[in-house]
Design a protein around this nucleic acid. Structure first.
Length: 497
DNA sequence: CGTATTTGACCCGCGC
DNA sequence: GCGCGGGTCAAATACG
């Protein structure tokens, strides 16, 4: 199957389909207990802090203030409703019954008008949700069809070119956005401890569960349940397991300046451990992704021993679930970096990587920002986001360089550029998969379904318009007081198309 | 009461 | 074989 087409399609779908409006208050990971000090996490990709103050709320609240019988003239004078209402004489004319009645009528009319608007919005929202649901169904259906085709093709092309860069990169792409083609063995493991199959007696049950699963007969039915994914080809199980193990060991380390305890990358994390690492007085915290049961992604967060303002976040593994828009920038960037690392480390036996690939995939990261290490115990790519823009001179995209460690920078509208850049990266990323892997036969069994699906989605003017509108809306929101630098606006903008 | 965090114990790989 | 360090587990605890 053509991974580029699939990827092009998967990212947008998850972009609009997996993060409903009900979820946007959960992005603060494990540090959003209300009583805690709330500088625990840098909220780089969202501004949900003021999500309740939507434009509609804004208007209605202000109008309530204006026309509240208890509201004084002083209050009214300082509220700009933007509705050009004739309110200047409300206070002084209170004794004039006729004027008062007119004002009341005006208030009632306005209230009715607002209520009608609200009702229309709700109807529209409902309609869009139904449309989205329909699109999701179509997506799932096509994915299932594609999956069946791929399974049958795997039987004929068994083992041929499946162990090379192509399959690795393809699995990574898929894993970043959807679990459809991921190894069910990995996804089935509840404790995600693939590296230690016979670890201890207390893990025996989990191992048994993994081994007892192959007899599952409900394949190809519940695409979105990681625990019930079909086994594509039993004879490739070991190869895929090895590939997955390599994938999981590949790490992407992000260095960013931050006073917070953890950067907000849009995903939900649960802390499962903390250790004092040797040579560093700062403890290292271990987190695992909790956005989906069985998601193998983990991350380590630790402050740099030399410069404690630098927060080092190391990601490991690929998400086995669709990502919310807020998680796209970081996930796509780390996924791309990891792919570079893997393609480089696997292309040569001595672990020499090709740094040029990095600049191709990560146009927003200069070579001085990213370092690759395939000789460490775990192959790791480090994205150093603590540098200034100035060391990225010969990069045409230098204006949108990540500055995760300086959340205040986003207040001036830089975050939108980051998001747009991330989307651009994703397309670049997808393009790389095609260009890098086109020589492998594994990429040549692209299914007609994937093509048609990709075409169907990308050709949908509503969808592309939604994305364009979302980006332009974000980019247009440059004011520090404007809260539209919320990645979740991608959702709303898409919905509103 | 459910969920998230803390933290001591445990396991494993690796070097000596 | 032993010790060390990294990583993970899971019971205890905290919190809403």
């Amino acid at each position: 199957m053509n991974s580029r087409e699939l990827n092009m399609m998967k990212f947008p779908m998850s972009l609009i389909s997996t993060w409903s409006d009900d979820h946007d208050d959960n992005d603060h990971g494990d540090d959003h207990r209300s009583s805690r000090v709330i500088v625990d996490e840098v909220d780089f990709f969202s501004d949900r802090k003021e999500k309740s103050s939507s434009p509609d709320d804004h208007v209605s609240i202000k109008n309530n203030q204006i026309y509240d019988p208890h509201c004084t003239l002083h209050d009214a004078d300082h509220v700009n409703t933007g509705l050009q209402l004739l309110i200047t004489n409300i206070g002084s004319d209170l004794d004039d019954e006729s004027t008062m009645n007119a004002g009341d009528k005006h208030v009632k009319n306005l209230q009715l008008q607002l209520q009608e608007e609200l009702r229309l919005k709700n109807v529209e929202n409902q309609r869009l949700k139904e449309k989205l649901s329909d699109l999701q169904m179509r997506y799932v259906s096509l994915m299932q069809q594609n999956q069946r085709n791929e399974a049958s093709e795997n039987e004929t092309v068994n083992g041929k070119a499946e162990g090379g860069d192509g399959v690795m990169a393809r699995k990574f792409v898929n894993g970043s956005s959807s679990e459809v083609v991921d190894d069910p063995k990995v996804l089935n493991s509840p404790n995600l401890d693939e590296r230690k199959p016979s670890r201890s007696p207390r893990n025996n049950n989990k191992t048994d569960q993994k081994e007892a699963d192959p007899d599952s007969t409900d394949q190809l039915v519940q695409v979105w349940e990681p625990n019930k994914l079909p086994r594509l080809n039993p004879s490739n199980a070991t190869d895929q397991a090895a590939a997955e193990a390599t994938m999981r060991k590949a790490r992407v380390s992000v260095r960013a300046r931050s006073e917070a305890h953890m950067i907000n990358d849009g995903c939900q994390w649960r802390k499962y451990g903390q250790k004092m690492a040797k040579g560093n007085p700062c403890p290292r915290a271990y987190y695992r992704c909790t956005m989906a049961v069985g998601c193998p992604v983990r991350k380590q967060v630790q402050r740099c021993a030399d410069d404690r303002t630098i927060l080092i976040t190391t990601y490991e593994g690929t998400h086995s679930h669709p990502l919310p828009p807020a998680a796209m920038p970081m996930a796509s960037t780390t996924a791309a970096a990891a792919t570079v690392l893997l393609s480089g480390s696997m292309s040569s036996a001595d672990g020499v990587v090709n740094p040029n690939l990095l600049s191709r995939i990560l146009p927003n990261c200069s070579s001085s920002m990213a370092t690759l290490s395939a000789t460490a115990p775990f192959p790791t790519v480090t994205l150093d986001l603590t540098h200034d823009n100035t060391d990225n001179n010969n990069n045409q995209n230098s204006h949108s360089q990540f500055h995760l460690g300086q959340p205040q920078n986003f207040g001036s509208g830089q975050l939108p550029q980051v998001i747009a850049q991330a989307l651009y990266n994703q397309s670049k990323f997808s393009g790389l998969q095609l260009s890098q892997d086109v020589g492998g036969s594994s990429q040549l069994h692209s299914s007609q379904q994937a093509s048609s699906l990709s075409a169907a989605i990308t050709a949908d003017p509503n969808f592309t318009a939604a994305i364009a509108a979302a980006i332009s809306t974000i980019i247009g929101a440059g004011s520090p007081n404007n809260n539209n630098n919320n990645p979740n606006i991608l959702n709303s903008a898409a919905y509103n198309q």
